[in-house]
Design a binder for these strands. Sequence first.
DNA 1: TACGAATGATAAGTATACTTGTCAATTATC
DNA 2: GATAATTGACAAGTATACTTATCATTCGTA
Lengths: 159, 159
Amino acid sequence: MLDLHEMPGHLIRRLHQISVSVFAGAMRRAGHDLTPVQFAALSALARNPGVDQATLAGLIAYDRVTIGGVVDRLEAKGLVERDVSARDRRARVLRPTRAGEALLAEADPVVRALQDEILSGLDPAERTELVRLLRKAAEAGNARSRAPLQDAGRRVGNG
Amino acid sequence: MLDLHEMPGHLIRRLHQISVSVFAGAMRRAGHDLTPVQFAALSALARNPGVDQATLAGLIAYDRVTIGGVVDRLEAKGLVERDVSARDRRARVLRPTRAGEALLAEADPVVRALQDEILSGLDPAERTELVRLLRKAAEAGNARSRAPLQDAGRRVGNG
DNA sequence: TACGAATGATAAGTATACTTGTCAATTATC
DNA sequence: GATAATTGACAAGTATACTTATCATTCGTA
């Protein structure tokens, strides 16, 4: 009989909660104010400046509506600029500000370092194996998510 | 250089999102209206009737305040009863109603079955290994979480 | 080029998941 | 037995993360 604490869904949720908590702690210690989603969005925008919100959502596998709120907060903090696209007046073109680039440069090494802390209970070989399995499972389950990862070129729509 | 899509934190979040989505889909197909948290709470209460909210939170590794809202909704749906404790008038004693027990009996096999769907991309050996690694990582990271799992007897406090 | 379909964004609503703060009740201590 | 510390619950606020619906704009097509 499978106990709740042996179910993949429950374990994934717990590890996610630990991950978010570790992220928040490391960021606070580093003196920055960025959530995991905000970091992911800023990081993706630095690599793909000028994309619109829907494309950004697809790049990091988030829901479009959620990204709207995330960008609101990044804009309020002066980390991201949002302009109406010249080509498509429905779209908001996004790019990091100077301050956004600067914060990202400082936060990036912190985020990389904290990844090991999330998996502090595993030895290096186990970490590698876990990441491999997570990638495989996430890739296979991508279509099952309400916010699938999307190739930069192709739009599939997730509403 | 570690890409965002290779970071454990990001992968865990994506798998969590897939997990929640699979859960919602399977529940909807089964004709039930239970979220993952609500199922976990109801399931824990069936095994531990009469506990208070803080103890319930510790049993399934959730934040106390979050559980308050979850129990609100379970109570509104008539699945859980909440009474003032005779021994400690600060505490609300929780137990599933008849309807709660009945719904749990129907939902339980659905939830067990959906666990494989979450990891549809992995073969059985990989699933076993992933669950082992998740358990190990979650156990080690428990103290790092804002809502640690707690033994039924001991209270450590998480505020 | 008119028109329906599709798309980008937002609005409103629900459900976690956390924060800090407050209050009441209980327990521990002197 | 008074007082301090703790505990259980709730309130208010923030941030995801989703739902459905609406609106404006654009695109595809006849």
